[in-house]
Design a binder for these strands. Structure first.
Lengths: 342, 342
DNA sequence: CGTTGTTGGACGTTTTTTGTCCCGTAATAC
DNA sequence: GTATTACGGGACAAAAAACGTCCAACAACG
């Protein structure tokens, strides 16, 4: 394997470029389903004509099929993309980075997709796809899966499809919270995921910013307290990672609290908790659901990408709760830089 | 491994071509030492211009260094060629053929270099190089190595260099015979090999076409009879393979004998014996030295290439004395065809 | 000191790639 | 229904790359 990489790099770097290009096209078409030439070109930022040449080639090889509605990937193409994925990663050098991060934080698995979600919608989609795959991989029958909210989680949920592994699972939101956009709330994500995979789900309609009294009152409700119990016993937690300030604002935290959070050095947010640079919890959303002490005993899978989130991801990794991370090249490079993993 | 290559070929069909071309250039330059552009071009039969582009590329990659005296390979280039040899073989599909032949005849090792010695001098040189490597590989200290004559053996001898493994060996000619060109006689080959490697040698100046009386007389000579004893106890026999008729003519066999040999269906010649299509011995040169019954107990290494020799090589393999074969793509394909190894 | 073989520059020619427009058509929205 | 949109693919000129060919400058060698 390593020999092949060496071969590519030293004897045919030019061919390697076209290899990457063609692979990217196939991958993108596979993600998108069926797409037109012009759209595809902008999404991969290639010129229309050069894309066209490549597509002609791929069509010739029976890897793409092209109808008047647009082009889509063939079975052979799918197979190829799947089989070639590890090699391509190695080729781009992502495998190395994966190993580094994995070892640095003693994690179970780290996946790095190529690109940067900050600048490329494409990468975001790949992140989603990778997240969906990982979810399938680790989920066993009858598992309870607690999911958090956020745009990345939404992306993952849209990439899920019916699968036998997930069929018997139960999706629940990790914590309460109703302030964010509906589509980004944990509740919506959980239900979408469940619906798309054919699994079951239960929702938790509880606001954040709860006072003590309100909390007590809510927990009186057997439905709610029961569900909270289920959540806290979930076997797996699936979450995004956000920048603290951005998240706080999105959750419409009061001005005063916001300053307070910032003062404490909060950098990152994950499953309702705010972390500083060293990974210490400096603040938490006051709502019901998963508690920090529950996280340790669960399989914790984080999905987040974009170089701008690199610092935040690093902070969460340092907290030491993460078992699996799915990120992108942009963020991964930032993590490597932050932690001096050279 | 093979699968990965197959996958890559789907996305870059001319991968193999380019790779072969560049690799061939490096290899040839390595063999030749330092060579000019035009020479190299004819030797690889490429056009001068396209070679030039490739050379420019290889120079860029620091695999070739080019001075006003010509170009030569860099250390990095040497390393690359060496490291990648097995991978390249796999790529071209030679490994498969090697395995097939090896298994079909129950041999120790089979090496196939790419090309066809009939049409490419280059391939002949590679054959020589491969032969030299194998000789080094199998030779142990203090071994007696019986070598036969022929142009292929001469090529091998010219590719040898001083080596610790061979330093303590003793090279001897396998059999007598003085009729051929001096440079192709076993005596010359043995001495060249010994000189180039820093080993010892002893020569056997005995004509072929010996009558019974002459034979008896010769064996009276203690020098000769002693050496014959040494030869017959050699641990290794290193020989070429020739077409029977060609060899017989070269040895200036009388017209009558020639017809007789041909009538018996002689197809191949090796270490003084003539074999028919099934590998039966149908004739032998009447001289002193190694006898057929000695061959079985020795490590027998044959070197021969060129598609025209395919049949002859097959015949010798069928005789069942061979332990190691070094040949080229042209001959190997012919062997595969002859034996229906598909 | 000439001869020979070397690289590298130059340049016209050919081939390939690329940019651009437009057309007919199938799907989609309205 | 019809209007609109988005699709692939044909066509063609422009640009670029590859190629064949020749020659000049230069170093090594006899």
């Amino acid at each position: 394997m390593e020999k092949i990489i060496q071969l590519h790099k030293q004897l045919i770097p030019d061919l390697t470029e076209t290899l990457k290009k063609r692979y990217a096209i196939l991958e993108q078409v596979m993600i998108t389903g069926t797409i037109g030439r012009r759209n595809l070109a902008t999404s991969l930022n290639m010129t229309e004509r050069s894309l066209r040449s490549e597509v002609d080639f791929l069509k010739e090889q029976d890897l793409l099929s092209v109808t008047s509605a647009g082009m889509s990937i063939t079975e052979a193409g799918k197979l190829l993309v799947h089989d070639l994925e590890p090699t391509m990663k190695e080729l781009i050098g992502l495998t190395k980075i994966e190993r580094k991060i994995k070892q640095a934080f003693g994690m179970k698995e780290v996946i790095v997709v190529s690109g940067d979600s900050d600048t490329s919608m494409n990468t975001m989609q790949q992140l989603g796809r990778a997240g969906a795959n990982i979810l399938k991989k680790y989920a066993a029958n009858l598992d309870v899966i607690a999911v958090a909210g956020g745009s990345t989680m939404a992306e993952v949920s849209s990439r899920l499809s019916v699968s036998t592994q997930l069929k018997g699972c139960l999706f629940v939101p990790a914590r309460g919270g109703l302030v964010e956009d509906v589509e980004l709330q944990a509740n919506s994500i959980a239900s979408t995921m469940a619906k798309r995979t054919g699994a079951a789900y239960r929702l938790l309609h509880v606001p954040d910013h709860l006072g003590e009294e309100a909390y007590q009152t809510l927990m009186q409700d057997p439905n709610i307290s029961d569900l909270v119990q289920v959540i806290r016993n979930a076997r797996m937690i699936f979450h995004g990672i956000g920048e603290a300030i951005t998240m706080a604002k999105r959750r419409k935290v009061h001005e005063g609290d916001l300053n307070q959070i910032a003062e404490k050095g909060a950098l990152a947010e994950a499953f309702g908790y705010y972390f500083d640079k060293e990974g210490n919890v400096v603040h938490a959303v006051t709502t019901v659901g998963l508690k920090l002490e529950d996280v340790n005993s669960k399989l914790t899978i984080g999905v987040a990408g974009g170089s701008s989130k690199g610092e935040a991801i690093t902070a969460v990794l340092r907290a030491g709760y993460s078992d699996v991370l799915i990120t992108d090249e942009g963020a991964a490079m930032e993590i490597v830089k932050q932690c001096n993993l050279h």
